[in-house]
Design a protein around this nucleic acid. Sequence first.
DNA 1: TACACAAGCGCC
DNA 2: AAAGGGCGCTTGTGTA
Length: 529
Amino acid sequence: MHVTVASTAGGGGVLRPGGPVPDLATAVREAERARPRWVWADGRAVYPELLARGVRLSRCHDLALTETLLLGHEGRYGEPASAAAAYARLHGLPVPDDPSGRPAQATLFETARRGPDVTEIDLVGEVHDDQLERIEATADPGRFRLLVAAESAGALIAAELGHDGMPWRSDVHDELLTGLLGPRPVHGMRPVKLQALADQVSAAFGQAVNPDSPQQIVKAFKSAGISVPSTRSQVLKEVEHPGVAPLLAYKELARLFSFHGWTWADAWVRDGRFRAEYVVGGVVSGRWATSGGGALQIPKVMRRVVVADEGWDLVVADAAQLEPRVLAAMAGDRGLAEAAGEIDLYAALAQSFGGARDHAKIAMLSAMYGGTSGDAPKLLAVMRRRYPQAYAFVEEAARSGEEGKLVRSWLGRTCPPPSSRWRELVSGPGGNGAARERGRFTRNFVVQATAAEWALAMMAVLRGRLPEPARLVFFQHDEVMVHCPAELSGEVVAAVAGAAEEATRLLFGATEVRFPMEAVAVTCYADAK
DNA sequence: TACACAAGCGCC
DNA sequence: AAAGGGCGCTTGTGTA
């Protein structure tokens, strides 16, 4: 059953079936008892406010996210994807650009564009009907329906992650920072240990050098008679000069200070929780992005700051070797699928590569990423011979990309078309480079996007199976974290394994390929690995 | 002063 | 000769 919903000013709204309600949160809470699929223009504008009122919903159809998926599938990547834009296209009206700011601010704007005689609830209903029809017209409607459901569930989960937040011990964070950097400095100053390293760098070069300025560093090395192509750590490690050691130490600590230091915590941590802003579908491959807080780039040293509440556990789980397993399942390669039936896929492959697990891994990664350096060509030749269908699958994706075609994930997420700039480049002299670059992108897209789908489906299933009051608190591509009372952690660990199995069944049906999801219950994130 | 961009590096 | 996909974020730097 579907219930469409639109919000109006002052906390009110409209449900259909139903009608106008003065208090949307209360009405939605009531209607949720029947477990409908909620249909709304844009969950980003609605759900956070419902969460703030303590309302949690089980399923939705998000028009804006679905429109993005449909437009991509239809080869219309980049057209405005708001519900208002979809409505305007249906009626030949001027199509409004997607709002760049917060979705909530878009409501007034949308009202102006759709005319005074069409209410938002009508608009939502009409666009929804249209989308259901267009879903049936996709290459594989069954899969696309699953994609839409998973993406929409992602919208719920992202809002909930932002609402609940990951446990973050400010005292441990401060201790960690103080230990590495010295006490918190006054605004605009470097912490003492950072300043000491900066001074050592200048002393080593015999002149004042700002270690934050790659240009100055290159110059300083030049005046010391050393030519460096860049100031990347990997490059500097090979250089023999007394400035190198303090410089490398400085770079590492400076990053910690500016990315995840006290200022960062002031902005993103409150009440013992780190609340990130996740962006569902923020990456073309369907991976999530963040719009602040850098939740997807938390350095590993920071994991000790993530500590469960007293009497609670963190259940941390990541999908092992997800991408090669996805490839095995998609390509229907019997040999690879057999290896992917093992817990350690690369070890199972090793025999084909002369017994070397590392070689198997390089071959797989090169096939999925388009790698050609080092031993890759030799190992890829082995892969082509031993796992011909898997090899052909990614080669086909690469060739399509080089030819400017679109490729799709397993569930139908579609890569962007090449730009007009790319088409010019490719038809010109030396266009091979651009073609190959896009080939690497599409080669990777089919695998990465399907892996993202698997992870999203897994998380959606898991969310529905968590015992109260357990909560998802973190998600990072192929890894989830659940915060739960310690006595429930066994149940949560089992739910994770079950969710992985169910996601596999939903995407691939009966497959030999296994997707191990190893979950551990810990009190501190740092202890999870 | 404001903004765009590149460098560099963290995560997957 | 070398050649891996995707992102976010901060600082420095150059331009308007």
